[in-house]
């Protein structure tokens, strides 16, 4: 367990999930999930549709209640904790706010003073490559730019934990690749703990230090695969034979269930 302060800062972002079960009435989404994510580690969560990856992510952010225990840096999560930021699949930008005001939103909610906000926001807008678009509204931007803005908003609060909920699922394939490498570049500059939900196996292997496969009904952690690819990762990583090997390994794990799910007749 860490203590806040300088020593705590270095180690902040340790997630511990113990015996987590989520039920909706009679339906159990997942049961008895145990997951530990170390500080500055990236864990990619994959699994078939409906396996509860996104639900698990929301539980970690304290947005949804569940049975069991979640703690971040030793503090039990009962509501969205300080120092945790989410990047949403739907971007979650406010259409009435400009890029600048959207990025400033998290800081304002955290009670950061105006001068500090004015200092920090342009940095993060620059970090995601949106300089010059400060006054643009979300409707004026492509999906890729909107998600850059969503990312800047999350990064601006300088979180120790970043929760990524299929962040690039709603953008086109080329933009997705560009954003993946941008995110890796940003992470290298300022490593934070990351839980990255995706349905793309390639993305999971590219981003993760570990790929955690969630499957079964109710789902549980089926595999926890170490991704021993070197960092920093870049486009070259994709042509590494080890990358192909790991991707096939994750795929083999998911395939059986995916086949079963695809050919399942309605009960």
């Amino acid at each position: 367990m860490t203590i806040t302060g300088i020593a705590g800062e270095a180690e902040a972002g340790h997630i511990s999930v113990r015996g987590l079960t989520k039920r909706y009435g009679d339906l159990t989404v997942f049961s008895k999930i145990d997951l530990t994510v170390r500080a500055r580690e990236i864990v990619a969560l994959v699994g078939p549709s409906g396996c509860g990856k996104t639900t698990l992510l929301r539980c970690i952010d304290g947005l949804l209640p569940a049975d069991g225990e979640i703690s971040i840096d030793g503090k039990r999560v009962t509501e969205p904790p300080e120092g945790v930021a989410v990047v949403f699949q739907h971007f979650g930008l406010f259409p009435w706010k400009t890029v600048y005001d959207n990025v400033a939103y998290g800081l304002r909610m955290a009670g950061v003073d105006a001068a500090e906000i004015a200092r920090r926001v342009p940095n993060f807008i620059g970090l995601v490559g949106l300089t010059g678009f400060e006054k643009a509204y979300p409707y004026q931007m492509s999906g890729g730019m909107q998600q850059r803005c969503g990312l800047a908003r999350a990064l601006a609060i300088e979180p120790s934990v970043l929760l990524m909920d299929e962040p690039f699922a709603a953008v086109d394939a080329q933009t997705r690749e560009i954003l993946q490498f941008e995110l890796l570049r940003i992470w290298e500059r300022r490593p934070t703990t990351m839980v990255f939900v995706t349905h793309s196996i390639e993305e999971a292997v590219l981003m993760g230090d570990r790929v955690v496969v969630l499957q079964g009904r109710p789902s549980h952690i089926d595999q926890d695969i170490d991704i021993d690819l070197p960092r920093p990762r870049s486009r070259e990583t994709l042509s590494d034979p080890r990358f192909a090997e790991l991707r096939e390994r994750v795929w083999a794990n998911l395939m059986n269930e995916a086949r079963r799910a695809e050919f399942q007749l309605g009960a």
Binding site: E79, P80, H90, M109
Partner: peptide, 16 residues
């Protein structure tokens, strides 16, 4: 609900 979820996630109070 997406908007409210974002607000909640950024620790906004109900009033704000």
């Amino acid at each position: 609900r997406d908007y409210l979820e974002v607000a909640h996630s950024f620790r906004s109070s109900e009033g704000r």
